[in-house]
Design a protein around this nucleic acid. Structure first.
Length: 151
DNA sequence: CGTTTGACTACGC
DNA sequence: CGCGTAGCCAAAC
């Protein structure tokens, strides 16, 4: 069983991380969840497979109000696709904002994570908030060790 | 209040 | 690869 002890704290951490995703890059639900330490007493396996859904809940909470501080449009699923209901107003907004950041979609409406996938925040930032390093996504990193925070 | 639904993901075919 | 499914969480009905 997962049962997060402090849901609001989890949401706060998710938003904190999402704010760090730079212009022109995207993070995934699972990636963000993996950066948050597994709460005490929570089974790690359950956390791994269920926490990404709760990250989606946290995104839903802000996108419905369209909180300006939080670039919610930069969060996509593990396949690089938009997870909002297709053709919904919110999904169209998200796609429009991503394209405005010069992020491109392939023929199947998917973003190449090897190109646009966020590599995560700097180690010192993670340490300051006691978070975990993100596990790499989308295969081998493109090799740019100097990913500037343009946000 | 039960019930249903879903901004997820890993895994097996 | 794509599709289906398990997992059993939260939020919305």
């Amino acid at each position: 069983m997962l049962q997060l002890p402090d849901l609001q704290a989890f949401y706060d951490t998710v938003w904190l991380i999402v704010r760090q995703i730079p212009y022109g890059y995207v993070g995934t639900y699972g990636q963000i969840a993996s950066m948050i330490p597994v709460p005490e007493g929570v089974d790690e396996t359950d956390y791994t497979r269920l926490a990404p859904r709760v990250v989606g809940d946290a995104m839903n909470a802000v996108s419905s109000h369209d909180v300006p501080d939080i670039p919610w449009h930069r969060v996509v699923n593990s396949k690089g696709g938009i997870s909002l209901p297709v053709e919904s107003a919110a999904a169209n907004t998200q796609r429009m904002r991503l394209r405005a950041e010069e992020i491109t979609f392939d023929m199947r409406e998917r973003i190449d994570l090897a190109t646009f996938g966020w590599l995560g925040p700097p180690a010192d930032w993670l340490a300051a908030y006691r978070l975990l390093p993100p596990h790499t996504i989308g295969g081998p990193p493109p090799g740019d060790t100097t990913q500037l925070n343009l946000f």
